[in-house]
Design a protein around this nucleic acid. Structure first.
Lengths: 142, 142
DNA sequence: TCATTCTCGATGCAGTTGCATCGAAAAGCC
DNA sequence: GGCTTTTCGATGCAACTGCATCGAGAATGA
């Protein structure tokens, strides 16, 4: 069935638009607070939750391109937010861990970030609507 | 109310993820067909629907940054897809119009694009769900 | 074991984006 | 009218991304 229904096309268009609007708001809020971009936060959160990880695992979890992540980790390591160590069971690989500064930055960023999410999403929907939206969006990655 | 509800945060996270997945699929499909990226299509469609427009109107409609659009139009003009003309009622401005090649490219791109939308969105949802999703997403930009 | 193939992460290079700012024209104000 | 402020679109420069490819190590398989 190659022809998408009108509702499908509308959903796509609004997905793009809603994402652009919400993401723009969030990134602007982070920048206004002197914080690094969202992907830095994502990396820090993932490392904090899951413990030290190898780049390829981060890559898979965060849907980042390999070369992109490689250089992102360069910048974050240079900023002292993560550390790279050798990988025991694979000589090619490495293990990336969050540093204490990394944890501190993530904690500092969360109020700004959560506030922006509230403005961009929470304020526009009832809680039930948000839950329903999450449910429908979840189907798109399954 | 600065604290977002859990449902809000989940909706945000899934919005980001669903967008990344769907957009990735669509852009990959366009590239695989030798077509230019999605924003080119958006510009062409907007110009086809609305007729010649000034850059700042395109900017507002497509949520593009000003400098970004300026250079995008450079590339598209160089590729012969749009033409820039002087603006009658504003000496600073210009009027951008789609060319015949531009129309042809848009027509050629649509089957690939719509197919990708169907794969990324339509195939994952019933029509009613798609309509509901569109409705909820629409609230985020209002 | 040794050769082939595959995976991991880095990197040179070209293209794109973001930021700040510019020049020109318009709009607002006295 | 003259002056200031605002808007429009372009652009220099630095940062980032995408692509192709590389080197090193691991896995496969005879």
């Amino acid at each position: 069935m190659p022809k998408p229904a009108d509702a499908t096309i509308l959903a796509w268009a609004r997905l793009v638009r809603a994402h652009a609007a919400a993401m723009g708001h969030v990134q602007a809020a982070l920048k206004a607070a002197g914080l690094p971009p969202l992907e830095w936060y994502d990396v820090l959160l993932e490392l904090e939750r899951e413990g030290p990880l190898r780049p390829r695992d981060l890559q898979a979890r965060l849907l980042l391109a390999q070369y992109n992540l490689s250089r992102l980790l360069d910048r974050m390591a240079e900023a002292g937010l993560v550390t790279r160590g050798p990988c025991e069971e694979d000589g090619r690989g490495q293990v990336v861990a969050i540093s204490e500064e990394g944890r501190a930055l993530r904690r500092r960023a969360w109020p700004v970030y959560s506030r922006a999410i509230q403005d961009a999403v929470g304020a526009k929907l009832s809680e039930a609507q948000a839950a329903h939206l999450a449910e429908l969006l979840g189907r798109l990655t399954r």
